[in-house]
Simulated scan of single mutants.
Amino acid sequence: MRPGPARPPGSSAAAGYANTAHTKGLMYPQALRILVVDDNPLNRDLVRLQLEEFGFAVETVCNGEEALLALTASPYKLVLMDLHMPVLGGRETIRRLRATDGANRDVPVIALTAQTCGSDRETLKVEGFNGVLYKPLEMDELAQTLAVFYPEAMSAANQAAAAQPGTWPCLLRRANGSVALAQLLLTRLMEELPRQMALIMQALDSGQREKALESAHKLHGSAAYFDLNDIKAAADTLERLLIAQVKIGEQAACNRLAAAIDAFLLQRDAIMAEAALASAS
């Protein structure tokens, strides 16, 4: 039996999900469920797809508050949690989780963060995390971390494909070689980038700098995941300006980011054609 239908990104895992995970012929019981906590829908879906490629049952939520609700409602064997999220961030979430008497109090929690954030492994360990994975997640690094907790399961899982340059090969690599998953990621990427750019412009026009920063951070993370270096660099510049509250250069940074996204969207037909060829082969 395959898992039940996936819920929309960001919906509460507390409502219940699949009893099993079935991917590439691997099937594990409900006891091997993993919770993914990330406010970025692209990152969240990517991590879910990567984990499902290894055969695990995965549930996702979009902030620490939803994570605590899910952890109160159901047992999990592992949690992958972003550090920087609105509503409730990863550090405060782990503090509250470890202070409870619930069944998931001691569940292993792996921090997800960008290397540029300067998060220290030892500091995170003291705070209650059991490890850290740096974005963008590589399949081999994810496999190594999973093997610490599930050595028998991971011995049966396929390892990541070799790295290749280019947008489509990167998507394929992130999807562990699955053409269908890579095509889905591409479609969502093409939708999410301009949507977040529009949110940044709207937020800045209305003086909501925190919301603009939130969207810039999401764009930065998505671009890093998919090796979109021009978008990543432009988003990083804007993010730094917003954090430092430096308005000089802000508009130029926005224009640069918008131009980088437009340039990527112009490649849509070429990337889609490459994806179609891969699907037909």
Rank of each mutant, 00 (worst) to 15 (best):
residue 66 E to H: 12
residue 148 V to M: 11
residue 103 A to V: 07
residue 256 R to G: 14
residue 113 T to F: 01
residue 48 R to E: 12
residue 86 P to Y: 07
residue 47 V to A: 10
residue 58 V to M: 10
residue 77 K to D: 13
residue 215 S to W: 00
residue 76 Y to E: 05
residue 208 Q to C: 08
residue 209 R to E: 11
residue 1 M to T: 09
residue 160 A to I: 10
residue 5 P to L: 09
residue 278 A to W: 08
residue 180 A to H: 13
residue 14 A to P: 06
residue 172 L to E: 04
residue 241 L to C: 00
residue 269 D to Q: 12
residue 171 L to Q: 09
residue 91 R to G: 08
residue 198 A to Q: 13
residue 248 I to Q: 14
residue 260 A to R: 01
residue 150 Y to A: 07
residue 56 F to M: 09
residue 239 E to S: 15
residue 31 A to W: 07
residue 31 A to V: 10
residue 278 A to F: 07
residue 273 A to L: 06
residue 275 A to V: 11
residue 180 A to D: 12
residue 182 A to L: 09
residue 271 I to D: 02
residue 8 P to E: 02
residue 57 A to C: 09
residue 231 I to K: 01
residue 177 G to K: 00
residue 154 M to P: 00
residue 114 A to E: 09
residue 232 K to A: 11
residue 22 H to D: 12
residue 188 R to G: 09
residue 220 H to G: 05
residue 194 P to A: 04
residue 276 A to C: 04
residue 15 A to H: 13
residue 253 A to T: 06
residue 228 L to C: 11
residue 270 A to E: 13
residue 122 E to I: 07
residue 16 G to Q: 09
residue 46 L to N: 01
residue 74 S to V: 08
residue 100 T to H: 06
residue 151 P to W: 08
residue 55 G to R: 02
residue 74 S to A: 10
residue 215 S to N: 02
residue 225 Y to L: 14
residue 46 L to M: 05
residue 186 L to M: 15
residue 227 D to N: 15
residue 62 C to Q: 13
residue 67 A to G: 04
residue 220 H to R: 11
residue 223 A to H: 05
residue 24 K to A: 13
residue 8 P to W: 01
residue 225 Y to F: 15
residue 104 N to G: 03
residue 30 Q to P: 02
residue 63 N to Q: 07
residue 47 V to Q: 03
residue 245 Q to R: 14
residue 259 A to W: 10
residue 192 E to L: 09
residue 174 R to I: 08
residue 53 E to G: 14
residue 154 M to A: 03
residue 124 L to T: 03
residue 210 E to L: 02
residue 195 R to W: 15
residue 245 Q to S: 09
residue 51 L to S: 00
